[in-house]
Write a protein that binds this DNA or RNA. Structure first.
Lengths: 146, 146
DNA sequence: TTGCTCCTCACGTCACGTGAGGTGGC
DNA sequence: TTGCTCCTCACGTCACGTGAGGTGGC
């Protein structure tokens, strides 16, 4: 049996699973991006599977879309707030309010999709140029051989 | 008639054309990434169309592929060296040497293509997830309306 | 001549990297 | 008990941002 508490991860394990470093995890906690790993009966931080997902999300949005950590925390806070409200309204069934929340969520998703597509277009242009260069080089190699 | 020397750009113009700032241009010169804008008969830097392309290339590789400026200068130096050698061998017609250069160029292009495709795949995964979320939200909105 | 843009320090900032010295848990 | 990983300072670094004070060109 593992000696670690059931399903809990240490900071080094979380770092490895997300392809980053313990220092980065601590930094994200320091600036309030991560909800500070619980210190269970010791001084060591301990994390859950949800934390793995959150760190992955942070890294993905930061490196793929080039968002600053400041922009990211705004974005993630808004997402969390909506999820929270969404859950409450789901219970109380206030349909008018639920619609407002859902429409806000939709808008945020559209914004992110626009960002993703802009990046993808740039990447595709770069790929086309590289393919073009490759064709040229291959042609020159063919001339030597032919 | 323009008072500026024919076809020459000032640092602010170069910055605007490439979507960056004069400070960034000066920094790239400082670390040797840009060949230091010529100071024509004054103290002001002056740039050509080629410089516009070079800055665009730097920014693109840095922001899209996430390369450090250190990695970038290695990459760009290698590219310039190959282009230079390529031109010389084109004249002297030493076919054996030309082939070596072309094959190196091909390899570098393949490396960059692999990087580009890795990034594109990640972006496409992110896009799929966003589309999935949008479908969910739209479904919930439909449930309210329907 | 008036304004703008340019110039060079030089300190500030963001997102971490990297030891220094010490403590905790399998 | 031995090793590893963890902990907290705290200074370093990369890629610029941001004034401060001054000079140059339409």
């Amino acid at each position: 049996m593992s000696a670690t508490a059931a399903g809990r991860l240490r900071i080094g394990e979380l770092a490895e699973l997300t392809g980053t470093t313990p220092r980065t995890i601590r930094y994200y906690e320091e600036i309030g991006l991560l909800p500070g790993g619980e210190r269970e009966q010791g001084k060591h931080r301990s994390y859950s599977e949800d934390d793995v997902e959150r760190v992955r999300e942070i890294i993905r949005l930061r490196s793929l879309l080039g968002l600053s950590l400041d922009e990211l925390s705004t974005l993630l806070e808004a997402q969390a707030a909506r999820a929270d409200l969404g859950r409450r309204f789901h219970q109380t069934d206030l349909e008018g309010e639920r619609r407002v929340i859902l429409e806000q969520a939709l808008e945020h998703i559209q914004t992110q999709l626009a960002l993703v597509r802009g990046r993808r277009n740039e990447l595709e242009k770069l790929e086309q140029e590289l393919l073009e260069r490759r064709r040229t080089v291959r042609g020159a190699l063919g001339d030597i051989d032919g």
